[in-house]
Design a protein around this nucleic acid. Structure first.
Lengths: 342, 342
DNA sequence: GTTAGCACTCTCGCCAGACGAGTGCTAATG
DNA sequence: CATTAGCACTCGTCTGGCGAGAGTGCTAAC
């Protein structure tokens, strides 16, 4: 598994050059561009060795070499150093973290956008369902005739709402009264802390309005269930248009479709998420459609729930830049989480 | 300007065939496919005439003809009949209209999605800023330490909110008190109806907390300003990948970029919106980037404010289907608006 | 072990020729 | 006089061959 220093240098040169140009790299190019003190013939010998070992491959007998997926894997594991963000980029990121006005999920969305902008790949973010702790307030707000809005605010500042029908027998004043009682019961309660006696109390205080109370409870239950699913945000999908490997329209279409259908997309994200940057290359991915794409991703925690953030690009990807940026972005999310807590 | 019956039939045949196959149409094909009782030679003569008049053009001297933009224009103006929705489609649309749970803007979003699904073109919807009439409620909800949520609900069921900082001198009880007073002043008031004396009353009732009151007012003002911009929703952008005219990657990229950047996109929508379906073909569009696309669109009213909805496709577009669907969808929106009002 | 040199391979772009779809024109027809 | 059959002609596309160029592998010399 270990390569001598020169082979590593040559492999690195080929990776860098191929990522940049998307063309097979010849022995002369390696010597010239990276100013090694050896002749092209030597490089040729080494390249032949590297090919035997499976790190390089030749599209045709008489062309230069390109790194195989295994070659990229070796590069990523043993040679690559993550590239730090530029000062400018660091500043942009800091600004995102400091802007405290927006909700966490919005912040994470912006982080995703940042990621795709800086790297020129498609980014994805899995925002975990916010398992909030307590209700902060619950309200019933009359709208047009026979309609009202159920509105919940959680301690995390998330707002959940739904419009419901109100029986004609319940007038605005009733609604207000019911809302007050609801709020009394739920306010600052943990979700798990709502017990039978609370519900009983609720029903008894409002027994004349049993119908509307039950309806509201039902809706609240439903709302809590439905807001529980994690969200997937994707941005920068059009970046893949720039990659020459996707000049094939059919391939392109498949990938863009995939990126648009978040359901399918979720399957591609590996489940063993650590907080370290992880990389899967080409056929290491399980899903057929992305066998010629690579993922660079990492996990993070949002209120204790695991989320994921990462990049999707061609196998011929600037892994150093991608990994560096994903790492920086993860640290930024952590920083933000701490900021929130204090 | 008027063509005799036979020329119109031939033009129509060529349009239909070309839209279907994206290939130049030959004289024989016209006769065969559309079972006209004339020979191909006659058709050739007629086609030559139509070309002289500018309704057809020949990509190369020895190929069939394709409709020119002028030809499409003639077809759309004088020949086309809008194709009605299928029963199945009508049912889907009715279901959308009847589902009363969601907010109007969400409904319109779904309508846009429906439009793109049914026609296989990219759809756009301009949702006008909802100039709501009255505040239904206004609340201040304490969150973590020194943070609170300003929450407005309008009579249209729209919810606007923002997190603000609270000076440490203001505790939770104060906040609740302030919220109540705010609500008292604003509740069921028209925006325009909030006058100096209201504000004066507000300030005086809470003069000890002047700082937080001013801050809140400022934020409310800002919120109202910022939620005032109309939204643009685009869906089905990937449908254009199916059109053979966009196999040119560069063209494709430009268009997809355009569709993603809503700012630029707004410019393409003509401003003289009637409630009739309108069509602009190719170079009739002002914006350079869509000179080889066509628009099929119509205006509608949402709470009296003008919005727009339409389709974007290649010049070689199924105008009959597109126009029929846009029309149906507009009627659906109208229907929904009436439903709301009663 | 490294390097210079050389024959060899394979791709790519270019060109010529065959093919075929479709036209325009002419002359014949009702 | 409109319509039609027939035919020569045009032009795009497909195919195969050819030369140039890039890059290799191998051999022999250092």
């Amino acid at each position: 598994m270990t390569l001598d220093e020169r082979k590593r240098q040559i492999l690195e040169s080929i990776v860098k050059d191929y990522v940049e140009t998307a063309e097979p790299v010849g022995s002369r190019a390696v010597v010239k561009k990276y100013a090694l003190n050896i002749s092209s013939a030597t490089v040729r010998n080494e390249m032949a060795d590297l090919e035997d070992m499976g790190y390089l491959e030749q599209p045709h007998t008489s062309s230069g070499r390109i790194p195989s997926e295994r070659g990229f894997r070796y590069y990523v594991d043993y040679i690559m150093e993550k590239q730090q963000l530029s000062n400018e980029e660091i500043e942009m990121l800091d600004q995102l973290v400091d802007d405290n006005e927006h909700e966490l999920s919005q912040f994470i969305g912006r982080i995703g956008y940042f990621l795709s902008q800086v790297t020129n790949y498609a980014s994805f973010v899995v925002v975990p369902s916010v398992k909030f702790e307590e209700f902060r307030t619950i309200q019933l707000i009359p709208l047009e005739k026979e309609k009202a809005l159920i509105l919940l605010v959680t301690d995390t500042g998330m707002i959940i709402h739904r419009k419901i029908d109100v029986p004609p027998s319940v007038d605005e004043e009733d609604l207000e009264h019911i809302g007050r009682i609801f709020n009394q019961v739920f306010k600052n309660k943990k979700i798990s802390g709502i017990n039978r006696s609370d519900l009983k109390y609720l029903r008894e205080s409002l027994k004349l309005k049993r119908k509307i109370v039950d309806r509201a409870l039902e809706e609240i239950d439903d709302l809590l269930k439905n807001t529980n699913d994690e969200k997937l945000l994707v941005s920068g999908t059009l970046n893949i248009l720039n990659e020459p490997e996707f000049k094939d329209l059919d391939k392109l279409r498949r990938i863009l479709r995939l990126l648009e259908a978040s359901d399918a997309f979720k399957d591609i994200i590996p489940s063993n998420l650590s907080e370290e940057v992880d990389i899967t290359i080409g056929h290491e991915n399980k899903l057929e459609d992305i066998k010629d794409l690579s993922l660079v991703y990492a996990g993070y925690k949002s209120y204790g729930e695991p989320g994921a953030i990462g990049l999707l690009g061609p196998v011929r990807m600037e892994y150093w830049k991608a990994a560096g940026t994903v790492e920086a972005v993860c640290r930024a999310i952590e920083k933000r989480m701490k900021l929130k807590k204090k």
